[in-house]
């Protein structure tokens, strides 16, 4: 070993790998929603105070802070409240671009959720479009949103803006 050392300069990077594994507990209300998906159904919950129906419900009304105890079976159709067309490729992308990502307000629900829109050219998507869920084959249903393959236009006339303006 030489007595002479060259100063390599300050350390500017330090890699400290971290990995933690967690269990996930969906809870009572979300478990009901997930079990509904396993049967090919959208199951929500109604707040007894304000009457709003949440899907998926997390077990409480975020406005009133009370438990949501009444289960509500929702229909298979809903309204596109807003959307975007994805044109940017990213790692792990499983759908061919361009595709449509939309907020969908199921009939009877007061909370929209995100869904994939297919079977329509991307330049024809619009706010208010009426859509329906297309499910995977019965044998492939699982307690997961993966049970919904996508949403597609259901052929009904567009919804009136007044019916969904609260949910944008």
């Amino acid at each position: 070993m030489s007595d002479e050392t060259t100063d390599p300069g300050p350390v500017t990077t330090l890699a400290t790998p971290i990995r933690l594994d967690f269990e996930f507990t969906p809870g009572v209300a979300q478990s009901k929603f997930l079990r509904g998906l396993e049967r090919g159904e959208f199951l929500g919950q109604r707040c007894a105070t304000c009457g709003k129906v949440y899907v998926p419900s997390r077990g409480s009304c975020p406005t009133d802070g009370v438990p949501t105890t009444e289960d509500v079976l929702l229909g298979n159709s809903g309204t596109v409240t807003t959307y975007c067309v994805v044109n940017v490729p990213f790692a792990g992308q499983s759908i061919e671009i361009p595709y449509i990502c939309a907020q969908i307000l199921l009939d009877g629900a007061n909370l929209s959720f995100m869904g994939l829109i297919q079977e329509i050219p991307t330049d024809q998507i619009r706010m208010g479009m009426r859509v329906e869920a297309v499910w995977v084959d019965e044998a492939e249903l699982t307690p997961s949103l993966a049970s919904v393959r996508y949403f597609r236009p259901n052929g009904e006339p567009d919804a009136d803006y007044e019916t969904y303006k609260e949910y944008l």
Binding site: T25, P26, G27, V28, R58, G59, S60, G65
Partner: peptide, 9 residues
């Protein structure tokens, strides 16, 4: 059985 919100309520 319960999530955080359900445990807190």
């Amino acid at each position: 059985e319960r999530n955080e919100v359900e445990g807190l309520m």
